[in-house]
Amino acid sequence: METVLRPLIVVGGSVVLTLLAGWLLDLLLRRADARHRETPLWGLLRRCRPPFLLLLCAALLRAAFPQAGVRTVYWPAIGRALDLVLIGAAAWLLIRIATAAVETVYARYAAGATDEARVRRVRTQVTLIQRAVAAVVVVLALAAMLLTFPKMQAVGASMLASAGVVGIVAGIAAQSTLGNLFAGLQIAFGDTVRIGDTVVVDKEWGKVEEITLTFLVVRTWDERRITMPVSYFTGKPYENWSRGGAEMTGTVFLHLDHRAPVALMREKLQDVLKEHPEWDGRSSGLVVTDTTPHTIQVRAVVTAKNADDIWTLRCAVREELIAWLAAEHPYALPRIATSPATEAPTPAGTGSGPGSGTEG
């Protein structure tokens, strides 16, 4: 009977103490979050409750079983399993704490910053650093788990001795992966592309939605996601419309008849722009840029504060100018002549048949 009660008491007591400690920790964090609304740190630290509970419970069980005098043939396996849980929970807790600290620093910086481009740059760097730290912690945790097995400790010396050769072979085999990894770090600290930037890659227009150490996600205007290796942005040319500022200049081309009222179109363009809040008022204009035997090419130039607004404004200007011309000046729209060609006149003094000559 005692061999059954002792394990139950140990497990039950550990679970009760763990839940009590978790409740107390959550209570303290909630009170701290209520008192310090200016920082999100305490609210973010509440996410650490699950790994904290797991770590505490595993530590209590690991310490209580030998002290309770419980002897079982399964103890070595139980002890090793608890060691693995301890290492995994500690790594999980460390990642959650680091994430909370990093997000708190970024939130404070973003709240006081006025330069949107710099905020996106810091966000990109923080995200990549956070992922790098998580990757390092996971690798170290896996290595510590492997070292808990006696056989792995025995071959540790030989593994270290051959680490140089293995590293060379792994570097050759994972050349593209390592290239993407270093490209991700270059993007993070080189400020070439940031989360939220508007880019054009492979004739696709969209915004950078996510940047990792190995790949980058671009969300297109029609809600598609394009996943690309980060090495693309360090080895090939691409358009970054947000680089140096989000303001943009857009053009609208119209092909019209030679009789089009260009002066009146300039006045109409100003009326159209005043009715659309997307226009930032920096610049506008309308000129004739080319001519053909049948039409002229008219270009309207407009400006907006970002890529989304410039696209909306270009479509609106194109639509309203064409509608205005169709209603007020239909002769200005291009047309194709379909009248039959006139026959050439017959020269004077020529006949039309065998008997057309004069008799003598």
Rank of each mutant, 00 (worst) to 15 (best):
L8E: 04
S14P: 03
T18K: 01
L19R: 11
A21V: 10
G22W: 07
R30F: 09
A32M: 09
A32D: 05
A32K: 06
R37N: 05
P40H: 15
L45M: 14
L45W: 11
C48N: 09
P51C: 03
P51W: 06
L55N: 07
L55G: 03
P66N: 12
V70H: 06
I87Y: 05
R96K: 09
A98F: 07
T99M: 14
E103F: 01
Q125T: 15
V138P: 00
V138Y: 08
L146Y: 13
K151R: 08
A154L: 07
V155C: 09
V166Y: 13
G171R: 14
L178M: 04
Q186N: 14
G190N: 08
G190E: 05
V193P: 05
G196I: 02
T198V: 07
V199F: 02
V201A: 02
T212K: 00
T212M: 02
T220H: 03
R225K: 14
F233C: 07
Y238A: 00
E239F: 05
N240P: 01
W241E: 11
G244S: 00
G245K: 04
E247L: 04
G250N: 03
H258A: 08
P261F: 07
V262R: 12
L269P: 00
H276V: 07
R282N: 10
R282D: 09
S283I: 05
S284H: 14
G285N: 11
L286T: 12
T292R: 09
V298K: 04
D308S: 01
L313P: 00
L313K: 08
A332T: 03
A332P: 04
A332L: 01
P334L: 05
R335F: 10
I336K: 04
S339L: 01
E343F: 04
T346L: 04
G357A: 12
T358F: 07
E359P: 06
G360R: 12
